[in-house]
Design a protein around this nucleic acid. Structure first.
Length: 468
RNA sequence: GGCGCCGUAGCCAAGUGGUAAGGCAGAGGACUGCAAAUCCUUUAUCCCCGGUUCGAAUCCGGGCGGCGCCUCCA
C-alpha cells in the first residue's frame, strides 16, 4: 500500500506521487494576524500537522511553508483603531500564534513568510501578468486579474462566472473592474489605508490577498510543487485565484494536490461570537484543559468531516489519553523486568503498526488508525497482565507505541516524573501500614496523597505513584 | 438560485453491497484488604418512505433534518 490522498482538484482519492522522489513541498494557508486564532483555525493547522507527520512517517522529507497574512483590510482597520503601526499590531498576534502552535504541539513550518516581507515578489508577479496582458489597471488605479483573458479559470470549483451574483457582496467601489469575477492583484491606496502602502509601477498601494500565496509559495517551493492545503472556505475564491495567477504568470502547472479540511462547529452549531460558542485556544486552556487534550479532539475526526467540538469531547479526550499514558508507564516499568520472550510482543507490534499505517495511508483515515492504537493498548495490557511481556519485548512494544505517537503527538511529555520527597515518604508510610494490616491508617495516608494531587496504584511489584 | 458536505449506540466516530471498528460514559464479573490501574462480558431495528439486489448502513429515487461556500472567512 502507498499513501493516497483526496485531491480537491480531481475530486477523488488518488495515489500520492511526489514531483521529486522522497521529497514533498507543502504550502498551507496560515493565519491573518489581526486577532487570536480560534479553535476552528487550529482545526485546519492540526490537519496539516497530521499530514506532515504522516508524510514523514511514510518516509518523505517534507518542506513546509506557512504564510502569515500581515496586511489586509482587517489588519489595517484594527491597527488603526488601536492607534499603533501595522507592524507593531501584527507582531502581537504573530507572537501569540507561535505560542499557540507550541501549546498544540504543531510541528513548526520550515518557513513562515510574512506578506509584508515579500511585496517585491508580488510586484514582480503582477508585472509578469501585466506583461502578458492578463492583468489590467482599472480607472480606480487598482490592478485586476482578467478572468476573460484566462480561459483555464475555474479548475477547483466548478463556478460559472455568468451565474455569479453580481453586486451581492461586492463593494460598490469595485465596479471599476471589467467583470465582477475579476479579482484584485494590487489595490490602489485609499484614505482608510493610512500609513500603509508600497510604491509600485501602478502607484502606491498594497497587494491583493491572493497574490501573496502565489508569490511566497513559488519563492520557497518553486512554481510547481506538491501539496497545498487550507480550509474548504478557501477553495473559492482564494485558491482558485491562486491557481489562475500562478499558472498564468509562470506558464506551468501550479500545485499537484489540493487538500481542504471541513470546518469545526460547536455543539452542532456554527461557531460565532454572537452565538456565544466562539472559542480560542486560550479559552479552552482556561477551562482547565491542556494543549494535548485539545490536540486529540481536533485530531480525532477525519479532516474532511465536519468536526463537532464540545467540552464533553475534551473530557473524553482526557480519559482516552490517560489510558495511553498508563499503558506507556507500564511498558516503561516492564522494560526492567526479566526477558519474557519477544515473540508475542513483536508479532503484535508489527501487526498494530501495519494497521496504523494502512489507515493513515488511506487519506489520513484517523479513526481506524486510532482503533489500531487502542486495540494494541488492550492486547499489550493483556500480555503485561499475563506476564508474557518483559525486558526486550516490552521495549519493542514501547518503541512501536512511540512510533505511532510520532504521528499523533499526544502522549504525555516525558517530564522527569520527579516525586517530591514528602510524597515519597507518605507513600512509604502507607506501605508500612499496609504491611502491618493497619488499613485505616493506610487509607488515610492515601487520602492525604490524593489531596496533594497524587494517586497511588498498588501493583504486584509494589506501589506506583502518579500525578492525578 | 448555483455548487458541495453530512445524518450510524447516551456522547464522539469508522465502515460505503454480504447481517455493524475504536474512544468516552453505563452495567455485570475477575484482580485488590478496599481502591486505582488492567483484563473479561455486555449496551445499535445504521433519520424516514419507496426502489434495485439472493443480500443495503452501504447503490438509486423521494422526503425530513443539520452544516458549508458562492469576492478577501480555516
Amino acid at each position: 500500500m502507498a499513501l493516497t490522498l483526496y485531491n480537491s482538484l480531481t475530486r477523488r482519492q488518488e495515489p500520492f506521487v511526489p514531483i521529486q522522489p522522497g521529497r514533498v513541498g507543502v504550502y498551507t494557508c496560515g493565519p491573518t494576524v489581526y486577532n487570536m486564532a480560534h479553535i476552528g483555525n487550529f482545526r485546519a493547522y492540526m490537519f496539516e500537522d497530521l499530514l506532515k507527520r504522516t508524510l514523514r512517517f511514510c518516509g518523505y522529507s517534507v518542506t513546509h511553508v506557512m504564510n502569515l497574512t500581515d496586511v489586509d483590510d482587517k489588519t489595517i482597520r484594527d491597527s488603526r483603531a488601536a492607534g499603533i503601526s501595522l507592524g507593531d499590531f501584527t507582531a502581537r498576534y504573530k507572537k501569540a500564534f507561535f505560542e499557540d502552535v507550541d501549546t498544540l504541539r504543531l510541528l513548526p513550518a520550515d518557513e513562515y513568510p510574512a506578506a509584508t516581507d515579500h511585496i517585491g515578489d508580488m510586484i514582480a508577479l503582477i508585472g509578469a501578468l501585466m506583461a502578458k496582458g492578463i492583468a489590467y489597471q482599472a480607472d480606480d488605479g487598482s490592478v485586476y486579474f482578467s478572468i476573460a483573458r484566462w480561459p483555464a479559470y475555474g479548475q477547483l470549483v466548478k463556478v460559472d462566472p455568468a451565474r455569479m451574483r453580481a453586486g451581492e457582496r461586492v463593494s460598490l467601489d469595485e465596479y471599476a473592474k471589467e467583470s465582477v469575477a475579476d479579482f484584485a492583484l494590487w489595490k490602489a491606496w485609499s484614505e482608510e489605508d493610512g500609513e500603509v502602502g508600497w510604491d509600485s509601477p501602478w502607484g502606491r498601494g498594497r497587494p491583493g490577498w491572493h497574490i501573496e500565496c502565489s508569490a511566497m509559495s513559488s519563492r520557497y517551493l518553486g512554481p510547481h510543487f506538491d501539496i497545498h492545503c487550507g480550509g474548504v472556505d478557501n477553495m473559492f475564491p482564494h485558491h482558485e485565484d491562486e491557481i489562475a495567477q500562478s499558472e498564468a504568470a509562470n506558464g506551468c502547472r501550479f500545485v499537484n494536490v489540493w487538500l481542504h479540511c471541513a470546518h469545526l462547529i460547536v455543539d452542532g452549531e456554527k461557531m460565532s461570537k454572537s452565538a456565544g460558542n466562539f472559542h480560542t485556544l486560550r479559552d479552552v486552556l482556561e477551562r482547565g484543559y491542556c494543549g494535548r487534550e485539545l490536540r486529540y479532539v481536533l485530531l480525532a475526526t477525519h479532516y474532511r468531516q465536519q468536526l463537532n467540538f464540545s467540552f464533553q469531547a475534551c473530557d473524553d479526550a482526557r480519559a482516552a489519553l490517560q489510558r495511553l499514558d498508563a499503558f506507556r508507564r507500564r511498558l516503561r516499568e516492564a522494560t526492567a523486568f526479566a526477558d519474557a520472550g519477544t515473540g508475542a510482543a513483536k508479532e503484535r507490534s508489527e501487526q498494530a503498526l501495519e494497521a496504523f499505517r494502512a489507515a493513515l495511508e488511506d487519506d489520513l483515515n484517523i479513526s481506524p488508525a486510532l482503533a489500531a492504537v487502542f486495540d494494541f493498548v488492550r492486547d499489550g495490557n493483556r500480555l503485561l497482565d499475563e506476564g508474557t511481556v518483559g525486558g526486550p519485548g516490552a521495549a519493542e512494544v514501547l518503541r512501536v507505541l512511540e512510533r505511532m505517537d510520532s504521528v499523533l503527538g499526544v502522549m504525555e511529555a516525558d517530564a522527569g516524573e520527579g516525586i517530591p520527597a514528602e510524597v515519597e515518604a507518605l507513600a512509604g508510610a502507607r506501605q508500612a501500614a499496609r504491611k502491618a494490616r493497619d488499613f485505616a491508617r493506610a487509607d488515610a495516608l492515601r487520602d492525604q496523597l490524593s489531596a496533594m494531587g497524587w494517586t497511588v496504584e498498588d501493583t504486584p511489584k509494589g506501589p506506583r505513584l502518579r500525578r492525578s
